[in-house]
Design a protein around this nucleic acid. Structure first.
Lengths: 134, 134
DNA sequence: CCGTATCCACCATGATACTG
DNA sequence: CAGTATCATGGTGGATACGG
């Protein structure tokens, strides 16, 4: 079948993005940290190992699918380790790896900035929004 | 019309997520920084003001729509200021606000961590992936 | 030059049901 | 208890054309 030029352009835009993603570590890391549940999971695991079910309870908004999926991604990137105690019922525990722990100071700095400036952001938004309607 | 319980559960999951988003500054900030083009734009603007067209050229993968949309979001959050010189053709310039500049050290820390550890991440991925096929 | 509106494809996520 | 498979859908982003 013929490949339309629209498809080609679409593909080229996508690959340009993917290449930039692949080549920029910062971009890749922020992409991962920006995933919906990552910061919540990291925050939980910062306090110590957690069972799957514990995470599921604490991170109530996430479906089991998303929880497992996100944990797999973190595990694949070497930030989280998964260990299974083979019993009935099975006991699956997740913990930060040393690499994952090395990320905590970074997360802490982001958190500190966020908490210090979230008020400014809210103010800016209110100003911006009211400027539109006013 | 009747609202099915599936719809209710869907809505409740969504709102649970949105509430957690609304209440957690860190989550909100990471969500913004995780947006496709934000880190690239901030990186550009860190060097000084840029015209719209300059940004479009440097950030080649982004469509004009996404560029404008992302800049608007940053402007709304008070991280970026937009100034128009009303001439023909119009000249639109974007620059970091003080708030935006206060974010640069945070970005720098993320970048430093990313560059230092991207090799570890790649190694972890290779190990993980080969463990699946092997 | 800069921005917006429209249309549409894709994919990330959620619901759900099922396995060990 | 933990994980997987399948299906549906809504939102995100891309292409495109037009307006100021």
């Amino acid at each position: 079948m013929a490949i339309s030029s629209a498809d080609e352009r679409r593909a080229s835009a996508r690959s340009a993005y993917l290449m930039s993603m692949a080549s920029c570590p910062t971009h890749r890391v922020l992409d991962r940290l920006g995933d919906r549940w990552v910061s919540l999971i990291l925050k939980e695991l910062a306090d110590g190992p957690r069972r799957h079910g514990e995470l599921a309870r604490v991170i109530a908004g996430a479906t089991q699918k998303m929880l497992t999926q996100t944990l797999r991604a973190l595990q694949r990137d070497g930030l989280v380790a998964r260990s299974v105690t083979d019993s009935v019922p099975p006991r699956v525990e997740y913990r930060l790896t040393p690499l994952g722990e090395s990320l905590l100071p970074v997360m802490a700095m982001v958190a500190e900035w966020a908490e210090r400036h979230i008020g400014d952001i809210n103010t800016a938004r209110a100003t911006y929004d009211s400027a539109l309607s006013g």
